[in-house]
Design a protein around this nucleic acid. Structure first.
Length: 515
RNA sequence: GCCCCCAUCGUCUAGUGGACCAGGACGCAGCCCUUUCAAGGCUAAAACCGGAGUUCGAAUCUCCGUGGGGGCACCA
């Protein structure tokens, strides 16, 4: 076990000031191995992110392997969504189901022969046995055991069968599964990087099925075989595998293989911290503009930088600066600093990180990212104009689609102010109309409308009328933008242009006069 | 029921026996800035699950409770 302990000290504790001087010892080979049985959610994204970071940190290899050995639960579009999600997040893999690699195939359904061979290797070695028990019989004894308040487990019937007899029955075409022959006595100790040694009594372990009667392997066999064949050095997976961890270690030892470093990640809990999110709660989150699904998050206007920063910190703590790009995460990541405790999802924090990363985007970048939202809403978008708008709305966006309420009006020929909103606070409609007329005079006298030219005379007007800037500018804002909340007024008017601004003020005057 | 894992502000976390009357972040509250909405700045409130041990000294180590999570399939 000494070698394992030594290999656990992969990195030293990082220090902000000498990041560059710290080098990890060995390039790792790590994998993200989802099963295409559902949608890609936050948990999957994080179980992909950590190995990705470790791979990039150590100059290693990140692999995507598809674990599709359950034909019953297979969901057609799932693999596509997985790949799409990873690409969107920027977690590019070096070897994988759709791109190949030296250890392929990377889709388990295409490796059937390999598992069959390995299952029988274990049988020949005396570590596994073919089992001919029917599901009906198994179910019956399970019920009986439950009735007797015993733990349901395989009763060992076929374990006692003569090896030659079983070989012949199997060869003759009789349906069978291959079960692992678990030691009946002693203990199994397995080492998890985050939790230390985990010891289990062997008698608590079952003779688990390795190869199903349809010829496909269970996870237990397939994952162990593939991790070995694909030379995986660190297995980073969800804590749902903790209970079968001893089994897996036993399988690897039965083959006589070297163990990888094991890291079992915690689960994500619902926002209250009590339990996992239910179907209903997932649906409610979506109504609220949030989601646990990666492609939903994308469609909701979240950016990969924000999502990544959010999930990377659910299970990994940094003491000070916590806003990071993917590259910064790579530079700072230390697998030894992951936390083993479950984390509650906090969407408010996602909003915070998303807004923060949006603000950090270069104007051209942000413009390119929000342009589709305007297009989709049916607006004609001129890039030059869009680029001028971006600095005005940048710090107001929490999600990309917030660009619509703030800036869609820029692309409209005319705006439709709500007459009631045109009336300034604590003033009458006719008083407001009067202010609007004075505003019109000031603005029309200007050669063009820029903040430098327009703001001083407008401030003077506010002063002269003895009103608040809020009252005077408010009328103008609603008149020009058609809404009471907008980007900064004078900068906005500059983009709209003098001609349109005057048209709109004129229209507002008319509306106010009619009230 | 049995097995395994986890436990620091409401939430994510820092903390690896003395540097901790516990640090950062989100959120919340107040103030400043301010043409709306934001952003930004400042300030505040807010935690070591409980009980026994070990030790000169415990958030940190051990045990027992309690709470939470995961598993007990020819699912992953």
């Amino acid at each position: 076990m000494a070698w394992l302990k030594a290999s656990l000290c992969v990195t030293s504790r990082w220090n902000l000031n000498n990041l560059e001087t710290i080098m990890d010892v060995e390039p790792v080979r790590v994998r993200f191995a989802p099963s295409p049985t559902g949608r890609m959610h936050l948990g999957s994204a994080r179980t992909a992110l950590y190995p990705y970071l470790l791979a990039r940190r150590t100059g290693g290899t990140f692999i995507l392997r598809i674990e599709d050995t359950d034909q019953k639960r297979f969901v057609p579009g799932a693999e596509k969504e997985l790949v799409e999600g990873l690409r969107w997040l920027g977690l590019n893999y070096d070897e994988g189901a759709d791109i190949g690699g030296p250890y392929g195939p990377y889709r388990q359904s295409e490796r059937r022969e390999i598992y069959h061979q390995h299952a029988w290797e274990l049988v020949e070695k005396g570590h596994a046995f073919p089992c001919f028990c029917t599901s009906d019989r198994l179910e019956k004894i399970r019920q009986e055991q439950l009735k007797r308040k015993e733990n349901p487990r395989y009763d060992g019937t076929c374990r006692k069968l003569d090896p030659d007899e079983t070989r012949h029955r199997a060869a003759a075409g009789e349906k069978y599964v291959v079960r692992f022959k678990m030691a009946k006595e002693g203990y199994t100790t397995a080492l998890d990087l985050l939790r230390g040694a985990i010891t289990t009594e062997n008698q608590a372990l079952d003779d688990s099925v390795l190869l199903k009667s349809d010829g496909l392997p269970t996870y237990h066999l397939a994952a162990m075989v593939d991790d070995h064949l694909m030379k995986i050095t660190h297995v980073i997976r969800g804590s749902e595998w903790l209970s079968t961890f001893p089994l897996h270690v036993n399988i690897i030892r039965a083959f006589g293989w070297q163990e990888p470093v094991w890291v079992h990640l915690s689960v994500f809990l619902k926002p209250t911290g009590k339990g996992k999110m239910s179907k209903r709660e997932v649906a409610e989150a979506i109504k609220d503009g949030h989601s646990i699904f990666i492609t939903d998050l994308r469609d909701l206007g979240y950016i990969p930088e924000g999502v990544l920063n959010w999930i990377v910190l659910m299970g990994w703590g940094v003491s000070e600066e916590d806003v990071m790009t993917l590259d910064e995460m790579i530079a700072r990541f230390d697998i030894n600093n992951l936390t083993p405790s479950p984390a509650a999802i906090n969407f408010a924090k996602l909003d915070h990180f998303n807004g923060t990363h949006i603000r950090a985007l270069r104007s051209e970048d942000l413009a390119a990212r929000i342009k589709p939202y305007f297009l989709q809403a049916g607006y004609r978008v001129e890039d030059v104009k869009l680029l001028k708008i971006v600095p005005l709305i940048r710090e107001r966006l929490v999600t990309l689609d917030d660009c619509l309420p703030f800036a869609a009006w820029f692309f409209k020929e005319t705006v439709e102010p709500n007459p009631a909103e045109l009336v300034a606070k604590n003033l009458t409609a006719s008083q407001s109309a009067d202010i609007a007329r004075k505003t019109y005079e000031i603005l029309s006298a200007l050669p063009e409308i820029t903040p430098e030219l327009a703001e001083p005379p407008m401030r003077a007007l506010v002063e002269q009328l003895g009103l608040s800037a809020n009252q005077v500018f408010g009328i103008l804002r609603v008149a020009v933008t058609g809404q009471s909340v907008s980007p900064p007024l004078f900068e906005s008017m500059e983009i709209v242009g003098k001609k349109k601004v005057l048209e709109r003020v004129k229209r507002a005057i008319e509306m106010l006069e009619k009230m």
